[in-house]
Design a protein around this nucleic acid. Structure first.
Length: 281
DNA sequence: ACAGGCTCCTGCAGGC
DNA sequence: TGCCTGCAGGAGCCTG
C-alpha cells in the first residue's frame, strides 16, 4: 500500500500520539507471517519499553525504544531497541482506544500506559514486523539513499552504467529507498521521461529534472497526507488526498492533463506502468 | 547485472 | 445470484 509519503504521514502521526508513552503489554494474533523474529522475542523487546520516537526510514517505520528507567535520566541516552514495521501492500498502523472495534486481520495490539492502543492491521500479510535488540544488533538502516535527502551528484551516480529501465531503477530499494509504483510513474511523467528508458543512458540534465520532480511530488504528497488509492489511512484513520493530484497513475485511456493524448499502460518490471506517449520521451 | 516470471496473501471490481 | 479473471501501494527468490 504505502510508499514514502504514506509511510512518512503514518510515522509522523504515530510519533505525535505515542512518543513518551510506555508499552505495557503486547498481543500478537498470528504465529506465521508477518514476524521476522518470533512473536515471543518481539514481545520481550517491546514490553515495558518507552517510545523515544517514531520515524520513517525508507518505506519502514522505526519505533525507537528505551528502557523504562531512561525516562528519569538523560534524554540523550541512545535507544535500547527498535521495532521495525514494514507495511507491505495493505498494512496499517493505527493509534486507537482499547474499545475501538478490532478490524479483521489485526496482527498486533500494543497496550500503552496512556490508555491508548497501537495496532497493526494487514489483510494480505505482505507486511513485516521485526524487533531489534541494539545491544546485539545494529540499528536498522535503509539499503538505499533517501529521495528527500539525496544530492544531485549522488543521485546521478546511482544510475551510472545501469542497463535496467529507469522505472525499475526507481523501484529498486537498494538504490533509492521509499519510491514505489505511484511515485515512480508520477515523477517520470513530471520529468518528461519514458519509463522504459535505460537508466544509465539518461543525461545529467534529465536526471537532475527527475530528482527535482521526485522531490516535488513526494513533498507535495506528504503535505496532502499521501495517496488513498483504496484503503490507505493515516495513524488516526484519515485518508490522504494526493490521489487527486495523480496525472498518470491509474488514468489509463484518460486524456493527458497536458496534451490530451490518452494515457498508456504497459507492464514493466512486473508492475503496471502509466505514461503519456506524447509528453514523455 | 539484469530481465522476467513466480510467489507470498486477501479483497474487490467487472464480465458473463 | 454465483463464478471466473485480473488487478492491487511490495519485495524476495529462482532461472536464463
Amino acid at each position: 500500500m504505502p510508499e514514502l509519503p504514506e509511510v512518512e504521514t503514518i510515522a509522523r502521526g504515530v510519533d505525535a500520539r505515542v512518543r513518551g508513552d510506555r508499552i505495557l503489554q503486547v498481543w500478537f494474533g498470528s504465529h506465521r507471517e508477518p514476524f521476522k523474529n518470533s512473536p515471543a522475542r518481539q514481545a520481550k523487546g517491546l514490553e515495558d519499553r518507552v517510545v523515544l520516537g517514531v520515524e520513517r526510514i525508507g518505506k519502514h517505520i522505526v519505533v525507537q525504544l528505551g528502557l523504562a528507567a531512561t525516562r528519569h535520566s538523560s534524554k540523550s541516552l541512545p535507544p535500547a531497541g527498535q521495532w521495525v514495521v514494514h507495511l507491505g501492500m495493505t498494512g496499517r498502523l493505527l493509534v486507537t482506544t482499547p474499545e475501538a472495534p478490532v478490524a479483521p486481520h489485526t496482527h498486533a495490539r500494543l497496550t500503552l500506559a496512556s490508555g491508548r492502543e497501537l495496532r497493526f492491521v494487514d489483510p494480505r500479510r505482505f507486511g513485516r514486523l521485526e524487533s531489534r535488540d541494539l545491544k546485539r544488533q545494529k540499528p536498522f538502516t535503509a539499503p538505499g539513499a533517501d529521495p528527500l535527502l539525496v544530492d544531485s551528484t549522488s543521485f546521478v551516480a546511482l544510475f551510472r552504467g545501469r542497463r535496467l529501465s529507469i522505472k525499475a531503477a526507481l523501484l529498486n530499494q537498494s538504490l533509492l529507498s521509499g519510491v514505489g509504483n505511484i511515485y515512480a510513474d508520477e515523477s517520470l511523467f513530471r520529468a518528461g521521461i519514458r519509463p522504459r528508458r535505460q537508466a544509465g543512458r539518461l543525461t545529467r540534465v534529465e536526471l537532475d529534472k527527475l530528482r527535482q520532480a521526485l522531490l516535488d511530488v513526494l513533498q507535495h504528497a506528504i503535505r496532502l497526507g499521501g495517496s488513498s488509492v483504496s484503503d490507505y489511512v493515516d495513524a488516526e484513520g484519515v485518508r490522504g488526498f494526493f490521489q487527486l493530484e495523480h496525472r498518470v497513475y491509474q488514468r489509463t485511456g484518460e486524456p493527458c492533463l497536458t496534451c490530451g493524448t490518452p494515457v498508456r499502460r504497459i507492464l514493466l518490471a512486473g508492475r503496471s506502468t502509466h505514461y503519456c506517449p506524447h509528453c514523455q520521451h
